[in-house]
Design a protein around this nucleic acid. Structure first.
Length: 603
RNA sequence: GCGGCGUUAGUUCAGUUGGUUAGAACGCAUGCCUGUCACGCAUGAGGUCAGGGGUUCGAGUCCCCUACGCCGCGCCA
């Protein structure tokens, strides 16, 4: 205890060291530690307290014979009491070293201790098992959940990643510039969060879904290279890897081509991944969207395992097997997956695959199983001997293997087999968790074409087409590819961007293809188009999903584990009970009134 | 908006075919215990079985509705 209250200048004695920083250098030196009681092991005589701060743990010992006063204070202290302990660092008796603790060879017998504040019994225990505690409860008491060393590690990692991003971009000539949070709603894309304003009755701001427009304006401003670790908001339903508010690493560069952007981001990602001790090879692999779909059935292929699709379309152009031949005649494809060892699937497993295929939007999943007494399949009887041989030869299937087929339009067949590729990869443990496969997927189609033939932008309406595809815009715009690119890590899209259109004529043509009139285009993006009247540099950029990147580096499945105060699945905050109803006065001031659905109005 | 799974002690869970007084571990409380580190030992408290309705002689258990949570589909330029 600090005895002399007359000279006391603080409510507590400040630490000289952090718990985890005490080493052999401090032995016999007097230190003061501040922290929480993690565990109190009271042996009746000796008391061992494991003290915790952000840096780690340190053991405090109290001996009733050596210092009855200190022993008295520490006796019966509950977990999570905040204390100060001062005393000389001593080496533990050698047979009592704790190898599980970095400071496990040391301890202090304090000469003084202070209880700074006490804790109620916790709603859940802050041990490793807290990961299993109901997430709602963890979020309700997030300040306790965040006390756990694992969570500290996650946020240390997040901090280091943010630093790596800034280091890399700063050294590459980028300026960090903030853009507005309250902005004009753009009627496209995700649903906006709207913010009413007292001074503008009947009008709202929208929260940014991304700083897209502003970063392009900054290029018009001649800022040359901009970045921002930007919060973005989308009022859409959630997923494990999706939050209504999330963080993008947003960047944009002027007078660059696609290759410049990719190489800049490669430097950035190499630095980011090195935070976790992962070395990425530059340049990253490049794969066109077409190739990714053709071989892996996904625009974010997981390259940690092979199992590429095998194209069998040509085998069935003149086949007697009409189910396949008709798809080919309609311009579709026949694609196959060869799965080693899948011949051992039970009847039930094969049936389950059919159910899943239907859920994925296919009619079913045709298969041939190769077991010891030859190939077995419900579709075998429709195929000629030559076709059967061609299949086995092309796929390389051997006894014990199975081949699964999808015959459909290119997109549908690839999509279905892509889902099954991941499923089989998981099921057969083909995914090497120690591999780090990063790649660029490039040459995305400019447009998505709906059933009625309407075009919508695959990325966004400012994405430039490839120079070599300009003519296709007139002849067959559905086939035109863009200068858009995604960066994909272990089967997850962690970022994407594009080279933007800086030519007025071209932008007008794209708007026209998208079915936007001049008036509509100006209504939506007038300020950007106007800015583009005053000399616009060629520019391009990209945005990375920071939450997802950090979660993957931390080995977490959910981005909520790397967001300090995340929302629940319901887009609500259990800690603060947000959102909540505004007061009558607030509504009145905003000139607003609710028009609620019946049943909610009663609540 | 839709589907799946879940909700039992403070926490994590078990709870048989619908049948007496709903259990365990950890935590908590009290006592004992002088080298623990998942300390140990003993005793004890602690339950609106999420809420509502129904079936039944009888419901934690079966059915329906609601709420909440997680996962997925739609959605997310």
């Amino acid at each position: 205890m600090t005895q002399d209250t007359q000279t006391k200048e603080d409510f507590f004695t400040q630490r000289s060291h952090f718990c985890g920083d005490v080493t052999a250098d401090q032995v016999s030196q007097t230190v003061t530690l501040n922290g929480w009681v993690a565990v109190n092991r009271d042996l009746g005589g000796l008391i061992f307290i494991e003290m915790r701060d952000r840096s780690g743990f340190f053991q405090i010992v109290a001996d009733p014979e050596k210092n009855p006063q200190v022993h008295g204070i520490l006796s019966g202290l509950k977990a999570e009491t905040v204390i100060t302990a001062t005393g000389p660092v001593t080496r533990r008796p050698e047979d009592t070293y704790n190898p599980n603790l970095p400071t496990g060879e040391f301890e202090i017998y304090p000469t003084s201790v202070e209880v700074i504040s006490r804790s109620k019994t916790l709603p859940f225990q802050l041990d490793d098992e807290a990961d299993l505690v109901d997430e709602g409860l963890r979020l309700k008491h997030r300040y306790l959940d965040l006390r756990r060393p694992k969570m500290h590690q996650n946020f240390l990692l997040r901090h280091q990643v943010a630093q790596a991003i800034r280091n890399s971009l700063n050294s590459q000539g980028f300026l960090e510039i903030e853009t507005p949070i309250l902005l004009k709603a753009t009627p496209e894309g995700a649903r906006d969060y709207l913010v009413p304003s007292r001074v503008h009755p009947g009008q709202t701001f929208a929260l940014p879904q991304s700083p897209q427009i502003f970063k392009q304006l900054l290029m018009v401003s001649g800022m040359e290279r901009y970045y921002q670790i930007a919060r973005c908001f989308r009022d859409e339903d959630l997923r494990a890897d999706r939050q209504p508010e999330f963080t993008q690493v947003d960047l944009e560069m002027s007078f660059v081509n696609q290759e410049d952007v990719l190489s800049t981001v490669e430097d950035l990602l190499c630095q980011v991944f090195s935070v976790s001790g992962i070395t990425l090879e530059k340049p990253f692999r490049r794969m066109s969207w077409q190739e990714a779909m053709e071989k892996y059935g996904s625009d974010k292929p997981d390259l940690r395992f092979g199992m590429e699709f095998i194209d069998l379309t040509d085998i069935f152009t003149t086949s007697e097997f009409s189910a396949f031949r008709q798809q080919v005649e309609k311009g579709g494809v026949v694609k196959a997956l060869m799965v080693k060892g899948a011949a051992s699937y039970s009847r039930k497993e094969l049936d389950d695959l059919q159910v899943m295929a239907k859920r994925f939007g296919a009619k079913g999943l045709a298969y041939i199983v190769y077991n010891e007494d030859g190939p077995k399949s419900p579709i075998l009887k429709f195929m000629s001997e030559a076709e059967q041989q061609a299949i086995q030869q092309r796929t390389g299937a051997e006894t014990g293997d199975a081949v699964f087929f999808a015959a459909d339009s290119f997109n549908a067949a690839c999509a279905v087999l892509g889902r099954f590729r991941l499923l089989f990869g998981e099921k057969h443990n083909l995914i090497d968790k120690n591999r780090h496969e990063i790649l660029w997927v490039t040459d995305f189609p400019m447009f998505e074409v709906d059933d009625a033939g309407n075009l919508s932008p695959n990325h966004h309406p400012f994405t430039s087409p490839r120079p070599q595809d300009l003519e296709l815009l007139d002849t067959d715009p559905g086939k035109a590819c863009s200068l858009g690119y995604d960066v994909v890590y272990n089967g997850a899209e962690i970022g994407g961007g594009s080279v933007r259109i800086h030519q007025r004529d071209l932008q007008a043509k794209i708007f026209k293809l998208l079915g936007l009139t001049d008036e509509e285009a100006h209504e939506k993006f007038g300020f950007l188009l106007e800015a583009f009247e005053y000399g616009v540099p060629p520019h391009g950029g990209l945005a990375l999903g920071l939450d997802r990147i950090v979660a993957m580096l931390a080995g977490e499945d959910s981005i909520r584990e790397v967001i300090a105060f995340p929302k629940t699945n319901n887009a609500a905050c259990p800690l603060t009970s947000a959102p909540s109803a505004p007061s009558e006065e607030q509504l009145k001031e905003l000139h607003m009134a609710w028009v609620l659905p019946e049943e909610e109005a009663e609540a």
